[in-house]
């Protein structure tokens, strides 16, 4: 089939490898780079758990052809903290207990980080709207939204 040699920049590292022309960024990240923090939920653009940043914008990696990501910067959940120093969004998800099984959490973080960076003064309603593309089947969302409010407060200060 159509294997192509490409270079992909993920979490500030450039990786050369072969990809199929029809594979998704989600497949490439998990199966070729072993970055399994990005989760495969519905695989049809409904649940938000495969969210990554493409040139700083949150996109669904299950709906993004890998070949389209050449010359762009991909950031995954593995690239959000600096070592042990968690991003405020991660820190407050832990503090507030904003996760139970944790499957949706990488997608929540990858959606919340650019949203709060762009809208540090977001109201609770706006945070809910910003996160409305991410499904969580455990927590009922309250603790997630609480955590994001706390994270926003820290990001403002």
């Amino acid at each position: 089939m159509g294997l192509k040699q490409i270079e992909l920049t993920v979490n500030d590292f450039s990786h050369p490898f072969l990809v199929e022309s029809d594979e998704t960024l989600l497949f490439t990240l998990r199966n070729r780079l072993y970055l399994t923090g990005t989760k495969e939920g519905c695989n049809q653009g409904t649940c938000g758990s495969c969210t990554v940043l493409l040139d700083g914008k949150p996109v669904l990696s299950c709906m993004t052809p890998t070949l389209r990501c050449v010359e762009k910067k991909v950031i995954t959940i593995e690239g959000i903290s600096s070592g042990e120093n968690l991003h405020p969004v991660q820190k407050y998800l832990v503090k507030n207990g904003g996760l139970q099984c944790g499957f949706c959490t990488p997608g929540v973080v990858m959606t919340a980080v650019p949203f709060l960076e762009e809208n540090p003064d977001a109201s609770r309603r706006e945070i809910k709207e910003g996160l409305s593309g991410n499904l969580c089947r455990c927590t009922g969302y309250k603790k997630i939204i609480d955590a994001l409010e706390n994270a926003a407060a820290e990001m403002r200060s």
Partner: peptide, 9 residues
């Protein structure tokens, strides 16, 4: 329209 991840694409 959908969610923010889809609106960007």
């Amino acid at each position: 329209f959908a969610g923010v991840q889809i609106r960007h694409r």
